[in-house]
Every structure is written in C-alpha cells, then in structure tokens.
C-alpha cells in the first residue's frame, strides 16, 4: 500500500471540483488526484499512492544522488576492491 509508483503527468483537468491528472506509468495511463501538488504541470514526474499524487519528484535531487554514488564508485576504483 505504501509502494508508490513514479509516473509522468500527461494531462491536468478538474473533476468534482478536484484537480485531477492522467499519469503515465511507463505506458500504463491512470487517473490520479493532484490536489496535494498544486504546482504540478504536464511533463512533471510524481509519485502516486492510492490514487493521489503525493509529491513532485525533484530531478535535481535525483541527479545529485546518482552523482554522489558515481563519485563513490570512482573513489573505490582508486582504492581497489573491498575485502
């Protein structure tokens, strides 16, 4: 239940006074409520739980995490293999 899935927002609209969106999960498109991410726009990535988008995914933070891990990898190469 707490396993959210990342998806790309492909449409934003209003239904029953709620901001809703179509989210593309790697080819499968489903509806989600966007009321908790008021800044969301088409093209953004978000994480959806039980039909509600809970946050936008930060591209910058995602890149920084991957960069950090790649740096560890470069340092490891210099140090040689672990035990």
């Amino acid at each position: 239940m707490c396993l959210g899935i990342p998806g790309k927002i492909v449409d934003v609209y209003t239904a029953n006074d709620l901001t809703m969106g179509k989210i593309d999960f790697g080819g499968v498109v489903r509806e989600a409520c966007l009321v908790y991410i008021p800044d969301a726009k088409v093209g953004d990535y978000t994480l959806v739980h039980v039909g509600f988008a809970l946050n936008l995914i930060s591209e910058q933070e995602a890149q920084e995490t991957l960069e950090l891990l790649r740096e560890i990898s470069e340092i490891e190469e210099k140090l040689g293999p672990s035990q």
Binding site: M1, C2, L18, C33, V35, Y36, H49, V50, L54
Partner: peptide, 8 residues
C-alpha cells in the same frame, strides 16, 4: 501515506 487520500 494513505491519510491524505482517505481524509480527502
């Protein structure tokens, strides 16, 4: 995690 959805 599900509270925002259930509350809404």
């Amino acid at each position: 995690t599900t509270a925002p959805a259930n509350a809404m």
